[in-house]
Every structure is written in structure tokens, then in C-alpha cells.
């Protein structure tokens, strides 16, 4: 699916976000390829949501620096010149939202308009981005609901959100987000509020939609099991920075950053439970808050492999550790080579 040689769909460089105080997101850089599903993983406060909202232009009163450049999408065959999202006037950003980049959130009930029928809400979005009217508008709405796996789309159009189950609501929310066929979908913990069976269905739906439409996806989650089910690539954020960026298969087999390893050993694993030692190791301590990040490695205080030098001497930079011919893999750890298994 991913073609690393092609220009990335979204290229984020040195993105820094603050709300008048210390930087919440600090020098964030990553690429999202066309049609790629990237899991943005991290604990609460790591900056994964704030970073995404900043790219979407949905933050108020925030100072955003750096660059987030969106290339011409699948629809234009990548021919259009890239659009710089940071600093784009509100009007132009609004025109891009929904049409080029879209977003779904954790709680599908509070995300939908409680006073408007599903049909009304879908028509509202379609009218904002297309010229469809009348019967064409109606059949597009039906097609969208079918696409997200709603069994009785005609009946669903007349319902208010309160009449739908949590899974159905999230499906409707996805239908709204993809109504104008965006090239990139930010999904901020879209399955966290759902129960496990529904979670799996929604993940399958999102992956299926990517396969159908070629839409890329940034999947924000703190749940590594969910990330492993959907992601082509995993980006781990820690205290506002990228600390590891690796293809999913590589990441789950041999993570290079001690923090990634700590996260993985905190995730419940079937083999461990079956073998009788379902003991989970949570990374000790807490993520340093934005004002107390210091100049050393930000994970140092919680790291089992910390050394005076180089860990506390300076902030490690994000380095590529991919061997020749291997896929893109970067890590922010001064001792990654020594620690490699």
C-alpha cells in the first residue's frame, strides 16, 4: 500500500504548539504516505491529540510553528502543488477540512448534532462540499451509509443520533467524515468509547475503507493492541516529541526505543496470560509535564537503561537506524545500538 518513494501525502516538520506557556508539542516531524495508516501512539499528554488538532487547524488560542504540508491527494494524482497548513487563512483551512482532511473523535454521541436527523447531518456536510441536490444528494447519503455498513440506510436517515447504538453512531460519524472523500482522515481514539466486539468491527471498517478509497489515516491511540490491528506504521510520541517511527511489523517485533519496549510490556499479551504470568509492567513514573522537560532525554527519569552519559548529557536527536534497503525507521535514543537485542 505504501510507496515510500512517492512524495508523502502529509509532511510535518518541526511542528511546535503552545498555548502561551511551555510547548505542548515540541519539534514534531513525521510523514504520512498516500493511503498509509499510521498509528500515533503515546500516553495522555504526549501531544498526539494536540498535534493532530493543530494540523487540522482546530485549536483556538494556540501558537503553532513549523510546517505541515499537504500534497495534492489521490484525486489530483499528486499533481497539485502542496498546501502549507500552518498559517493558512481560516477560510481556506475550512474549505480543506472535510474535503481533503477530515477527523473523527472518541465519543460519537457528543460528536453528532443531537437535534438533527442522521440524514440532515449527512446532507449538511455534502452541501458544504459538493453541488449535489435533490435525488442525487439523497442517493449519495444512502451510499455513504451503506459504505460504512449500516444495514437499513433509508430508515437510518430519519433517525436522531440518540436512537443509535454506540457502534452505529461511530459508523455514522465515519460516514460524515468521508462524505467528501478526503485524502487523509485523523481518527482520534475512535474506538476507545466502544466495547471490544464493536471496536473490532470499526477497525475492520476503517481498514476496509482505506483499501477501497486509498484514503490515508492517522490513527491516534494509546492502545497498542488497536495499533497493531490497523497500522502500517507506528509513531511513538513521548512528552511532545517523536521517539520512534517504525513500520508496524518491525515495531512490534523489535522496538528500538526503551520507552516503546516499556509500552509493549505494559500491553496485555495472550501468550503471557496463557502461560500463567499475566503480570503487566507499567512504565514507572509519569510523563514530565510540558514545563519540566529539561534538556536531557525526556524518558531518562523512567528508563531502566539510563546512563549519566550520554542520556543525561544532552537531548538525543531522532536518528535513522534502518539498515540498507530496510524501510524508514528512526529512534530518539542515544544508546539504541548498545541496547539492541
Amino acid at each position: 500500500m505504501t510507496d515510500r518513494n512517492a512524495a508523502p501525502l502529509l509532511s510535518v516538520r518541526n511542528l511546535t504548539v503552545n498555548f502561551g506557556g511551555p510547548d505542548i508539542v515540541d519539534d514534531l516531524s513525521f510523514d504520512i504516505g498516500q493511503g498509509e495508516i499510521v498509528a500515533l501512539v503515546g500516553e495522555s499528554g504526549s501531544g498526539k491529540s494536540v498535534g493532530s488538532l493543530a494540523i487540522m487547524g482546530l485549536l483556538e488560542n494556540a501558537t503553532i510553528q513549523g510546517s505541515a504540508s499537504l500534497s495534492g491527494g489521490a484525486s489530483s494524482g499528486g499533481q497539485e502543488a502542496p498546501t502549507e497548513l500552518v498559517g493558512l487563512p481560516a477560510r481556506r483551512l475550512r474549505a480543506l477540512r472535510g474535503r481533503r482532511i477530515s477527523m473523527i473523535f472518541q465519543d460519537p454521541l457528543s460528536s453528532l448534532d443531537p437535534l438533527q436527523t442522521i440524514g440532515g447531518q449527512i446532507r449538511e456536510v455534502l452541501k458544504a462540499h459538493t453541488r449535489l441536490t435533490g435525488a442525487a444528494l439523497h442517493s449519495r447519503a444512502i451510499a455513504l451509509l451503506e459504505q460504512v455498513g449500516i444495514v437499513d440506510p433509508e430508515g437510518c436517515l430519519a433517525l436522531l443520533p440518540q436512537r443509535l447504538s454506540g457502534g452505529m453512531r461511530q459508523r455514522v460519524m465515519i460516514a460524515l467524515a468521508i462524505a467528501a472523500e478526503p485524502d487523509l482522515l485523523f481518527a482520534d481514539e475512535p474506538t476507545t468509547a466502544l466495547d471490544v466486539t464493536v471496536q473490532a468491527q470499526v477497525l475492520r471498517l476503517l481498514k476496509g475503507l482505506r483499501d477501497q478509497t486509498g484514503m490515508a489515516m492517522v490513527f491516534i491511540t494509546h492502545n497498542l493492541a488497536v495499533a497493531s490491528a490497523i497500522a502500517d506504521r507506528v509513531i511513538v510520541l513521548y512528552a511532545g516529541q517523536v521517539v520512534e517511527d517504525a513500520p508496524a511489523d518491525v515495531f512490534f517485533r523489535r522496538p528500538a526505543m526503551p520507552y516503546s519496549r516499556a509500552l509493549l510490556s505494559a500491553a496485555p499479551r495472550l501468550e503471557a496470560v496463557l502461560a500463567g504470568y499475566g503480570h503487566l509492567e507499567a512504565p514507572r513514573g509519569q510523563v514530565p509535564s510540558p514545563g519540566q522537560r529539561g534538556t536531557a532525554c525526556r524518558f531518562a527519569a523512567r528508563c531502566d537503561d539510563v546512563r549519566e552519559t550520554p542520556c543525561l548529557a544532552s537531548m538525543p536527536s531522532l536518528v535513522s537506524i534502518a539498515a540498507n534497503g530496510e524501510a524508514h525507521h528512526t529512534v530518539r535514543c542515544a544508546r539504541w545500538e548498545e541496547l539492541a537485542p
Partner: peptide
């Protein structure tokens, strides 16, 4: 404060529409 306002913006609805309709 509700998510629906942020979602409406994420879907590209205009602020005028959001203020009047939502």
C-alpha cells in the same frame, strides 16, 4: 463545550452555519 462543535468544524462546516444551526 460539546464535541459536536469541534466535529462540525472538522467536517468543514462554516462558522456562520455552526453558530446559527448548532
Amino acid at each position: 463545550k460539546q464535541d459536536q462543535i469541534r466535529t462540525a468544524r472538522a467536517l468543514g462546516l462554516s462558522s456562520g452555519r455552526i453558530i446559527v444551526h448548532r
